[in-house]
Nucleic acid binder design. Structure first.
Lengths: 241, 241
DNA sequence: GGTTATTTTTGACCTTTGTCAAGGCGCAGG
DNA sequence: CCTGCGCCTTGACAAAGGTCAAAAATAACC
């Protein structure tokens, strides 16, 4: 079966599963499934009973929470390769957020029960997960910092930097991976604010924006502008889990 | 030696160490030290080399980060019983934030090396730490949500609710555990904003504020006001790690 | 008990972001 | 080539929060 071959390849490449036992990986591949999710497809809802966790194979997935009156807070927007829903293990088997595909995506689903079992049986996996969790925690801490110390334009600059190849020295072209409205919500601002703040960023740094394409002469333009309001030095490692 | 007796008692009561081996606990107690930290005492600085982790025995400890130009973002303010600095294990042995006592405090210091070793040797401890980390992650997620969806007054209301006995049904008296200026920074706002927002909260809910003392007729007053702008139902469990 | 610090509150004003409404742009489908 | 529907931008205005300066209230100290 082609599907399981594909799943196998993806799973074996995940850092978190490098330490897993072969038996576990076999069982995991057996019960893995790929799903096509169109733009807007809701994968699960906050506080649903959780029996699966997921990996983004391609596309983008938004994690978010909603209040009763419909206001929405975006927790994160995940690119290909990221795991989500796995923390339900520690949350009474219920999802701590809702998940929705925001671009046409392929999602792999896997049973939480297997993961739960293997984490208890295999210390190496528990350590790998601990390490991943610590990295995520650091990211969230930084997010909170950014929201308090950076203004809208600086947050956009920082976002662009994280999309770029951080090693590059010359001119760079960046493509926004999803709608600007969505970038705005990811950065905790309104679409209108995003639009205006991007304009301000353009004036301040000389970057060029055409639709979803951003061109910079060099990273320094943005680094000066955004990273001055951040406690970390520029090459912000720790970005990909 | 009295000190080690005291440390032992505290360590044995920590949920995280319930699963630790007796040998580990012995070693831990041997190398534990208590420190008196006056108000304002800096315990370590962001990116210092980390060889110890800590437990707040009494008092309050502020975790924070600073930008080059002096702006400060408060990551958290920890009460007695909380561990900090332990995530340095996953951070290249450097502290991910600075720590300062904001009230006269007693702090226990413990070697990271022991923890590192035991986590690798004892799966149960790794699991306990994983679970603690997951709880913390959830808290951070909620923090980000609050900063985007709640206004200043609502955040204060939410903060008061978390200080209160959540089971109580009748009138309640809450004492602010540290300076209002500090509460403000914990909630990501300026002292002036805090003062005015507290005034607004008073008008809106009928709570009574005298200095550091807050009296409410019942929790409902605050719940209606604050929790409407939050994705979680009221009794916010998951508060203490 | 008076005096000095420190913390908190107020007032006036400014900046940033949110809100509402109207256009504009671009692309898919006819 | 035209039309319609999202997405994005703009303008005008409102609201929230930040800033600066000064007064008021507490707490701390001789």
């Amino acid at each position: 079966m082609r599907e399981s071959e594909e799943c196998k390849k993806i799973l074996e490449n995940k850092a978190m599963f490098k330490m897993a036992s072969p038996e576990f990986m076999d069982k995991l591949v057996q019960s893995a499934h790929l799903h096509n999710a169109g733009k807007g497809k809701v994968l699960f809802i906050h506080q649903d009973t959780a029996d699966k966790f997921y990996i983004v194979v391609s596309g983008w997935v938004k994690l978010f929470r909603e209040t009763l009156d419909g206001a929405q807070a975006v927790v994160d927007i995940l690119p290909a390769g990221h795991i989500f829903g796995e923390t339900s293990i520690f949350e009474n088997d219920s999802y701590p957020y809702s998940a929705e595909a925001v671009e046409p995506s392929v999602i792999m689903s896997l049973p939480l029960s297997l993961l739960k079992q293997e984490i208890e049986d295999n210390p190496k996996l528990a350590l790998a997960m601990l390490s991943a969790m610590a990295r995520y925690r650091k990211q969230q801490d930084r997010e909170i910092e950014h929201r308090t110390l950076q203004n809208a334009s600086q947050r956009i600059g920082c976002f662009l930097l994280r999309l770029a190849d951080q090693e590059a020295t010359g001119p760079i072209t960046i493509h926004l991976p999803y709608d600007k409205t969505l970038v705005a919500s990811r950065l905790g601002m309104q679409p209108e604010t995003f639009s205006r703040a991007l304009g301000k960023l353009k004036d301040a740094t000389g970057i060029k924006v055409k639709g979803a394409t951003v061109e910079l002469k060099s990273l320094d333009q943005l680094i000066d502008y955004s990273c001055s309001a951040c406690s970390s030095e520029f090459p912000c490692h720790d970005l990909n889990a």
